[in-house]
Amino acid sequence: MLSCRGVGRTYQTDRGPVDAVRRIDLEAPDGRFVAVIGRSGSGKSTLMAMIGGLIRPTIGSILIDGVDIWALDDNAMARFRNRRIGYVFQFASLLPTLRAIDNVALPALLDRRHAAAEAYDRAAQLLADVELGTHLDAYPSEMSAGEQRRAVIARALINDPILLLADEPTSDLDEQTEREIMALFLSVNRERGTTLMLVTHNLALASEAEQVVQIADGAIVP
């Protein structure tokens, strides 16, 4: 269960405070596919980052699986992000000096719950699941944008998260690749039961979601 209670974020700028997100209340049960839509600058990504534990809200609280994530200390928050949240960014977010398999295994290695061999076996399986079984040793520069995005999805799933956040993950991909990536997200959501929150401009994609949240000027449009 994802629960946002009066969540807001205000940025201090030279021209005074700017409210990027204004006291948003949002509930999403486990396993749901939630699409967040809105124009550029509406506050979608900031909301997503606060839910993903990447930026602290200036007001309100966020509960994931009953845990008030912003009440956690630094280490506990890092552990929570690592184990419970998968994040797919809107840019190619693989570390360029690591092979695909290293990139995918990295979150598991950071956690140190599992032996390295176990993490690598799982990373190899995930890469095979996203049809990159032959690219284990490929470096990001040797992969296409779509392949990189699939590798990022595999990385997001390495620790079996309960919440998968995707911030415009297909914005820089062609239509065919976008369809493939979206199919992958939907299969993760439906087959693994992972809660999926997807920020998108694409209304056709959003129409497949069970819950659509429209944001304008930092607030949910009723």
């Binding site: 993903g52 990447l54 630094d74 890092a78 552990r79 992000r81 960014f89 570390l95 979150p107 620790n159």
Partner: peptide, 15 residues
């Protein structure tokens, strides 16, 4: 960007 990414996937401050 890279360090932010590492934090996003769960790297602790000490790491």
């Amino acid at each position: 960007n890279e360090i932010g990414l590492l934090k996003a996937i769960g790297a602790r401050r000490a790491q």
